[in-house]
Design a protein around this nucleic acid. Structure first.
Lengths: 236, 236
DNA sequence: CGTGTGATTGACGCCTGTCAACGTCTGTGG
DNA sequence: CCACAGACGTTGACAGGCGTCAATCACACG
């Protein structure tokens, strides 16, 4: 499953970044994690872990973008979340001692550190601050998931697509030309919104026609945030 | 907001029950919580806490049933979860230091213990086992939320209704006559499934006609679990 | 140059939400 | 005890959003 094990990328300071959860560790704990971690590179399409599998560790993202998704009927993916630099993935099933409830796949070539599950549990049990930080991350994710449920249940596909574009903007930013800094296939977009690929294509064309966005292959330029917000019916 | 404060119900052992999260506390911690807790009774329809409000504690359910929901467009409720005896609610926003992301309302007359947020944070920081238990609960909820997202995004209303009925069966059990031990309005059912009240009514009639269930007001008798499972397209 | 993946467009129809009318039941007040 | 209001449940009509199927185009790659 893990490919490119031969390429050991340098990520000496991947656990030091300010926005990382590991900033709550003591120097000793930090050293422990440094010793235990295993760094690897992954190419677009590589699977980090599979839904339903037993995992024995979690991952810290040093670079690249990962999509987290569940596989539903007909093998259709439902994208639950993205992870980027500084984020951690796969910790949920470690903490709850369950099988992985989702899969993780590389969207943009990535470098990840694998950290054994025992180490995580050890840290959670002994370091109250780290524990609180992990808990807060989990709780925030839970809050987002609940919002998402309400959205999908109550909003139209059109509203959700507008909202997804805005969320992507917030998460991955725009470049100087207002182009979304993440490249997704139409199908992936559909799998976030929870609709058919064709519907996304039609609505994107419509948005383009209405001068809300501009399209160039997978590059999406955001032209009118205000009106997108209005369409998304943002109430949260 | 808190009514019936005059009625102090006896819940001396509400924190002792085997399936409660508090079983991980030391005797001293247990005594602390016993000292801090405030017990109250609530009637159907009472609101425990409101989405968007700042809460300063969480609740342990001694008896009764609570629904957790978010309010979407047009004030339509989306029911996220239920809580019953032994469960805790409202802890998420305490741990993540956010405003409540959902509301909690009584479905069946209930007795709850309020426990201050500081106490919770204290316990999480100092008791590794309790911390792990809370974390596990959060992670499990997160896993369920993710499944729910996939379901709502990919399944039809019919499939989801069948699934909801089965979930309710698992959570609230059946009596000796196979009747669901929770009483919900058609609108509440619709707000779980994420559809219109009329759709629920029509599909329930259809299920009844197909001898999958029997209806008597709000009493729902489950007749054919196997076929309901088939309809719900259970793949998880 | 053939092949495969992804993007696009059109046709079609069903699921499902909305609106409206009506029936049912319960509690309240006269 | 009856009338009435209000909440809830039910049914029918209707239309439109959106999923599905199919054909075609665009593009990269071996």
């Amino acid at each position: 499953m893990i490919k490119h094990r031969d390429q050991i990328p340098s990520c000496d300071n991947c656990l030091l970044s300010e926005d990382s959860i590991f900033k709550h560790l003591t120097p000793e704990e930090h050293a422990l994690v440094e010793k235990e971690k295993v760094c690897n590179s992954y190419k677009r399409g590589n699977v980090i872990y599979h839904e339903g599998s037993r995992t024995n560790g979690f991952y810290c993202i040093n670079s690249g973008i990962i999509k987290i998704f569940k596989t539903g009927i007909d093998g259709r993916e439902q994208i639950i979340a993205f992870a980027k630099k500084g984020g951690i993935i796969g910790y949920r099933s470690i903490l709850s001692s369950e099988l992985a409830c989702s899969s993780a796949k590389v969207i943009e070539d990535a470098t990840l550190c694998f950290i054994p599950g025992d180490t995580l549990i050890q840290l959670v049990k002994t370091n109250g601050n780290f524990s609180m930080a992990i808990m807060q991350q989990t709780c925030r994710e839970l809050g987002e998931a609940n919002s998402y449920i309400t959205d999908i249940a109550q909003k139209t596909v059109r509203e959700r697509l507008a909202e997804v574009l805005l969320n992507l903007k917030d998460t991955f930013d725009l470049d100087q030309d207002n182009v979304l800094q993440i490249s997704l296939t139409r199908e992936e977009l559909a799998n976030i919104v929870g609709t058919a690929t064709e519907s996304v294509i039609r609505l994107l064309s419509e948005f383009k026609h209405d001068k809300l966005i501009d399209l160039n292959g997978r590059k999406i330029k955001i032209l009118d945030i205000k009106r997108l917000e209005k369409i998304s019916n943002a109430f949260n």
